[in-house]
Design a protein around this nucleic acid. Structure first.
Length: 587
RNA sequence: GCGCCCGUAGCUCAACGGAUAGAGCAACGGACUUCUAAUCCGUAGGUUGGAGGUUCGAGUCCUCCCGGGCGCACCA
């Protein structure tokens, strides 16, 4: 907005004066110190080297050329060669009108020609409820996706389901241990936790009575019966029953062989888990366009195809009976096995096949968010992508670091295996979705996050979520008051903005930054910039509110100030929307 | 041992390579007959883990060291 206009004006002057100069690191930014004006540029210092002219001399020329531009009230040179701009109030008036006009659209941009990208995140094993690291990944990934959408990028959210390996089998064994009356040793690799027992109970009540195990029999149906488990377990009981009755031409119990019964149980448990994860995520405000199953690349022959591609490209060799991928060619520490000596593909090869599928789906760019315990996989995966002929930066992988939950200052122990953990659902239930989402994206993704449960629950000043939400509610409250005082809301657009002064320009100056913050946040993959900005904006507003009476006897002044508040409200609301946090009208 | 991430005020954290490193909490002192005090204003608090280097300019980039976390399977 204003900053863009200043930058454009500056660049034009530079281009006219020194046509051959490179302007790459020339920046126009908000001045940190109020005494430095509103915006500042480093242009003179940056150009000084190229032009071999003293910075102050360049600054002098810039000021001379820009002085008459009516964007500026005042321009001065300071420090080592900064050019500081003070913005004319008319520019702020225009900005205010623009924000009111754009409303929910303010902050959105579409500067890059709309590309089509994919972001994969969470991708937790379907063996239990989602933990807090998954919750952080969910909040981070979804916010990032929202930021992309806000900057004109079309984006698909994807969850990769590891439904193929033996992790799920261990879960099934654990459930079966309960089904068999808790006899003998609990499976060594089994999963503890109340949810395992609950699933067993549900299977016992709803699933097992439907089937009767018989020796091999030609009336027995196989695959379709397993398939219908998906519908049954996914909460669609009606569809499940219908499919079941289509598979079998008689009433339950349906006869199945031991083997099929086992498959049915496995599938049912898997779908239960996925259903649970999906509903927990949706309650958290995160919805995936697709849940891509690892099993599908095995069944579809894509694993073999991926292997062949690597082999044909010359990146596979044999050693000790296994097949190895030359990931060291791409900077990995050591080469990695893709095909075991027993002829079975590794997880890594399936993962390559999965990413090969992503390539074939035609995305311009793909992003994967991993948990902290998977960073070792990055070099080999990036290597595999290059081996398949993709540019190095097509796939981008980054890590969200771990989360320490604190209760009364003490860490809460978390271990999925031991069944002693706080899940996404439990967390959301305890602190609420708004606080959880805000807290998870409040910090840079690559720092360790201390999540203070007590703080997140506090409805007070030290809880940043309430601080920001309260600012929004407060604006709404002022509007209610204005209405009660007989001020017509419709007059806001027609208010005389010339009545406004420096107090208001302080707010407008911050509002001007919002589109840049959104764009930078998306570009840098740093969603925390949004909550940080919202906290600052809220503080600016709360300060303004105390110092200035918005609704007064002066109808015109009231209207003009209300128009500023409306702009503040729009930006806070748009910002919270990016985080999927609610903007309450009253608190 | 090798690799990745982190180290900023007592605590939790900000700061696209920019000017005198900023907020909140905690501490201390103030502001409610006034549109929501869930708020605001002020005071105090720092060798940005350490040492070099790069340059007009470094918390930020490079090298080494120290400290913390996490990885280093023909598991997934």
């Amino acid at each position: 907005m204003i900053r863009d206009r200043v930058e454009a004006a500056l660049c034009e002057v530079i281009a006219n004066q020194w046509p051959d100069v490179k302007m790459k690191s020339v920046r126009v930014e908000p001045a940190r110190d109020k005494s430095h004006g509103d915006l500042a540029t480093n242009a003179a210092m940056v150009l000084s080297k190229q032009l071999k002219v003293a910075p102050r001399e360049i600054a002098d020329q810039l000021v001379h050329s820009l002085r008459d531009n009516d964007l500026f009230r005042h321009i001065e040179i300071a420090g080592p060669g900064f050019v500081n701009f003070s913005i004319d109030s008319r520019a702020y008036q225009e900005l205010l009108r623009t924000i009111l006009e754009l409303g929910p659209q303010y902050g959105l941009s579409s500067e890059p020609p709309g590309s089509y990208q994919q972001i994969e995140f969470v991708s937790a094993n379907p063996t239990g409820p989602l933990n807090v690291v998954s919750a952080r990944a969910a909040a981070t990934g979804d916010t990032l996706a929202r930021l992309f959408e806000a900057t004109g990028i079309r984006v698909d959210r994807e969850f990769y389901v590891n439904d193929y390996g033996n992790q799920v089998d261990h879960l099934v064994e654990s459930v079966q241990w309960y089904l068999n009356g808790e006899q003998g040793e609990f499976p060594e690799q089994g999963y503890h936790g109340d949810y395992v027992q609950e699933i067993a109970k549900e299977a016992e009540g709803n699933l097992l009575p439907l089937f009767k195990i018989v020796p091999d029999d030609d009336t027995v149906s196989g695959a379709p019966a397993i398939e219908c488990m998906a519908a049954l377990a996914s909460g669609d009981g009606e569809k499940g029953s219908r499919v079941l009755s289509e598979c079998f031409d008689h009433a339950p119990p349906y006869k199945v062989t031991e083997e099929i019964h086992q498959s049915i149980l496995r599938r049912w448990i898997l779908e239960k888990m996925l259903y649970m994860q999906r509903s927990d995520l949706e309650a958290f405000g995160v919805r995936f366009q697709s849940w891509f199953r690892e099993s599908s690349v095995h069944q579809g022959g894509q694993v073999e195809a991926a292997y062949q591609d690597l082999d044909e490209a010359g990146y596979v060799y044999e050693k000790e009976g296994a097949r190895w991928f030359r990931s060291t060619d791409f900077g990995d520490d050591e080469d990695r096995v893709v095909m075991r000596s027993n002829g079975r593909p590794t997880y890594f090869l399936a993962d390559i096949a999965y990413h090969r599928d992503k390539i074939e789906r035609g995305y311009d760019h793909a992003i994967t968010i991993l948990g902290p315990d998977h960073h070792g996989h990055i070099p080999r995966m990036l290597g595999a992508m290059q081996a398949l002929g993709k540019k190095k930066d097509w796939l981008e992988i980054f890590i969200v670091q771990q989360v320490n939950l604190l209760r009364e200052g003490k860490p809460v122990k978390m271990s999925k295996r031991a069944g002693d953990f706080v899940s996404l659902r439990e967390l959301t239930d305890e602190v609420g979705r708004d606080a959880a989402r805000f807290f998870f994206v409040m910090l840079r993704p690559n720092t360790h996050l201390n999540f203070d449960l007590e703080l997140a629950k506090k409805r007070s000043l030290d809880n940043p979520v309430y601080y920001v939400q309260y600012a929004h509610a407060r604006v709404c409250s002022v509007f209610r008051h204005a209405e009660a005082a007989g001020i017509d809301r419709a007059g806001i657009g027609k208010a005389d903005l010339a009545l406004l002064g420096t107090a208001e320009w302080g707010l407008l100056k911050m509002l001007d930054q919002f589109p840049d913050i959104v764009a930078a946040s998306a570009r840098m993959r740093e969603p925390h910039r949004i909550p940080t900005y919202l906290k600052e904006l809220s503080a600016e507003f709360h300060g303004y509110y105390h110092a200035n009476k918005v609704v007064s006897d002066d109808q015109n002044l009231s209207l003009s100030r209300l128009s500023v508040l409306e702009a503040v409200r729009i930006v806070i609301r748009n910002g919270l929307q990016l985080l999927s946090v609610s903007a309450p009208e009253a608190m």
